Simulated assay, not measured.
Amino acid sequence: MRVSVIQMNQGSDKAANLEQARRLIEAAIEADRPGLVSLPETWTNLGGGRESRRAAAEVLPAPGAEGGPAYEMLRGLARRHGITVHGGSIIEDGGEKLFNTTLVFAPDGSEIARYRKIHLFDITAPDGTGYRESALYGAGQDLALFEAGGIRFGCTICYDMRFPELYVALREMGAEAILVPSNFTLQTGKDHWEALLRARAIDTQCWIVAAASYGTYEERGATRSVYGHSLVADPWGHVVAKCSDGVGWATARLDQAVTRRVRAGMPLPEHRAAARAWRDKAPS
């Protein structure tokens, strides 16, 4: 199965972001004929502050009902082109709290997965810039997987990648590939982005499919930068496709024969079971 990771430079203008995403997805489909396309994290809005995020948020419909502009665009692209569309994440209006939420649509336009980001980005960057995602967003509680092209995909979002136990849990639930839509800061990205994604591929022996935002955006009068470098890594940890700087996409083929070969040669689940037995015997 071929997958394309879409790299965007979104801002606070939701309509412009929707048009940029549509244009890039359709260009990737025309050029590379993927069976699945993946967008970055919160591709409908980046920057502009609280008011801008709330204005971009959408109330998500019950399955089969009509949704907001981003929801319907993703569903329409999936149906029109007969592919699976992984909508990175959009801002979900959950009432009192917003949620950072992934939506996935099958080739017939039906919604097949919904995932709310579990690990919220509450950190201080090396330059002293603070990020407090929990001030506006609620945390998800549930894992989500779906099937496309005969491959079982697990859903994560950005900061989730720093928690390998989540990825191991997805592998134990049958994941062969894990999606990681992201807005990774430039400061952390240049040191950690590729290292973490390759590590999660090696930990789980899964394909890692990571679409990311690139460039600068304005946040309450300050200019912030996101790293980009959207990539696909194979189950051995090799990066097999990567975006250059700027907007665009990268495409790779997920080969299940590679997955089987890596897993047969190094049976990590068996070895992990032994490690857990040792941990359970350790004194508290």
Score class of each variant (00 low, 15 high):
189 G>R: 04
189 G>W: 07
189 G>M: 03
190 K>N: 04
190 K>H: 08
190 K>T: 05
191 D>G: 02
192 H>C: 04
192 H>E: 15
192 H>Y: 15
192 H>R: 14
193 W>P: 00
193 W>E: 00
195 A>M: 13
195 A>K: 12
195 A>G: 00
196 L>D: 12
197 L>S: 00
197 L>C: 01
198 R>Y: 01
198 R>P: 05
198 R>T: 10
198 R>C: 09
199 A>C: 08
199 A>T: 11
199 A>K: 10
200 R>F: 06
200 R>W: 08
201 A>H: 01
201 A>F: 00
203 D>E: 10
204 T>L: 06
204 T>V: 09
204 T>N: 07
205 Q>R: 08
205 Q>N: 11
205 Q>I: 06
206 C>R: 05
207 W>Y: 15
207 W>L: 08
209 V>L: 05
209 V>I: 12
209 V>F: 01
209 V>G: 00
211 A>Q: 00
211 A>P: 04
212 A>M: 03
213 S>F: 00
214 Y>M: 02
214 Y>I: 05
215 G>H: 05
215 G>F: 03
215 G>A: 02
216 T>M: 07
218 E>L: 11
219 E>D: 05
219 E>A: 01
219 E>S: 06
221 G>A: 00
221 G>K: 05
222 A>Y: 12
222 A>E: 14
222 A>F: 12
222 A>K: 15
223 T>Q: 15
223 T>V: 08
224 R>W: 13
226 V>Y: 03
226 V>E: 04
227 Y>T: 02
227 Y>K: 04
228 G>N: 10
228 G>I: 04
228 G>E: 10
228 G>K: 07
229 H>N: 13
230 S>Q: 01
230 S>K: 00
231 L>V: 07
231 L>A: 05
231 L>W: 01
232 V>P: 04
232 V>D: 01
232 V>T: 00
233 A>S: 07
233 A>P: 05
235 P>S: 09
237 G>E: 02
237 G>C: 06
238 H>T: 12
238 H>Q: 11
238 H>D: 13
240 V>N: 04
240 V>L: 07
241 A>R: 01
241 A>S: 08
242 K>T: 11
243 C>G: 08
243 C>A: 11
244 S>K: 14
245 D>H: 13
245 D>M: 12
246 G>P: 05
246 G>Q: 07
247 V>F: 03
247 V>W: 01
248 G>R: 06
248 G>Q: 05
250 A>S: 07
250 A>D: 04
250 A>G: 02
251 T>V: 09
251 T>W: 04
251 T>K: 01
251 T>E: 03
251 T>G: 07
251 T>C: 10
252 A>P: 04
252 A>I: 08
253 R>M: 15
253 R>F: 15
253 R>S: 15
254 L>C: 05
255 D>Y: 01
255 D>R: 00
256 Q>T: 15
257 A>H: 15
258 V>R: 02
258 V>C: 09
259 T>Y: 14
261 R>E: 15
262 V>M: 10
262 V>T: 15
262 V>S: 11
262 V>N: 09
262 V>L: 10
265 G>K: 11
265 G>S: 14
267 P>W: 02
267 P>E: 06
267 P>Y: 08
267 P>R: 05
267 P>G: 07
268 L>E: 10
268 L>A: 11
269 P>K: 03
270 E>I: 10
271 H>S: 11
271 H>V: 13
272 R>K: 07
272 R>I: 10
